[in-house]
């Protein structure tokens, strides 16, 4: 009975969304946007600030929006990742952690292969972060890639544990560094997170990557450890 009600509710909602969107003169059809009338046009042509130097505008428009025009959202996003990694540590953290055994039988090929894979992924992550302004990607996937390379090490060896405290330190310093960059902008130009020098955007990209990597490694470590009995 409950399932039928839920089914009817869900179907009604779906039909309602589709009907009211397809019959709506304001909502444009699929594949036919008018974003050149809205705020996006400013981001694309970068006529937002008026006096912007070309050096401050990255080739990847999405990166430009993330770290510059809407950098405050990104600060919030970093905060969300930060608070959830402390939250996971609060919920799952224990006084004397011990690795959970995955019961792999590590052989020679696996350990060598995983180390090679670790190197490749780590370098790819760094590459993605450093080229966020010109190529697709950006610092979020880059940071996550770095964290995944460490995840590979966790998976390949049952006794492996990375030095979590270093990642925690990096995460904390990177996140507070992000706020600090914003405050520097406030101090020098009177605007929080002002983008007045090309260096600012690079710094923010690297800081985000460190924060993401640190946060995700912390989460993974907490999921793979338990109380020592």
């Amino acid at each position: 009975m409950k399932k039928i009600l839920a089914f009817i509710f869900a179907i009604t909602l779906g039909v309602m969304i589709i009907l009211s969107l397809s019959n709506n003169e304001l909502f444009t059809d699929f594949g036919d946007t008018n974003h050149y009338d809205g705020i996006s046009s400013g981001y694309i042509t970068s006529e937002v600030g008026g006096d912007e130097e070309p050096a401050l505008v990255p080739v990847n428009i999405v990166t430009g929006i993330l770290v510059d025009y809407r950098g405050f959202d990104t600060l919030g996003e970093v905060t969300v990742l930060f608070v959830s990694s402390i939250g996971v540590a609060l919920l799952l953290g224990v006084a004397s952690p011990k690795r959970i055994n995955l019961n792999f039988k590590p052989n020679f090929m696996l350990s060598v292969g995983s180390r090679a894979l670790f190197g490749v992924m780590f370098l790819t992550g760094i590459y993605i972060v450093l080229h966020a302004k010109t190529s697709p990607g950006g610092s979020f996937p880059g940071g996550a890639m770095i964290a995944s390379s460490i995840l590979i090490l966790y998976l390949s060896n049952d006794t492996f544990r990375t030095d979590v405290s270093k990642f925690k330190l990096g995460k904390s310093l990177a996140a507070s560094g992000f706020v600090l960059v914003g405050l520097i902008g406030l101090l020098f130009t009177g605007e929080f997170l002002a983008n007045f020098h090309p260096f600012i955007m690079d710094t923010i990209l690297v800081l985000i990557a460190i924060d993401v990597a640190g946060g995700i490694v912390g989460i993974i470590d907490n999921f793979l450890t338990e109380e020592r009995v």
């Binding site: 946007t33 974003h35 809205g38 705020i39 996006s40 981001y43 694309i44 428009i61 999405v62 929006i65 993330l66 809407r70 959202d73 990104t74 919030g76 996003e77 969300v80 990742l81 950006g138 979020f140 993401v212």
Partner: peptide, 13 residues
């Protein structure tokens, strides 16, 4: 439109 892409990146994280 690049803006929805930026918003989705935030939403994914």
């Amino acid at each position: 439109d690049p803006l929805p892409q930026a918003l989705v990146l935030t939403a994914i994280v």
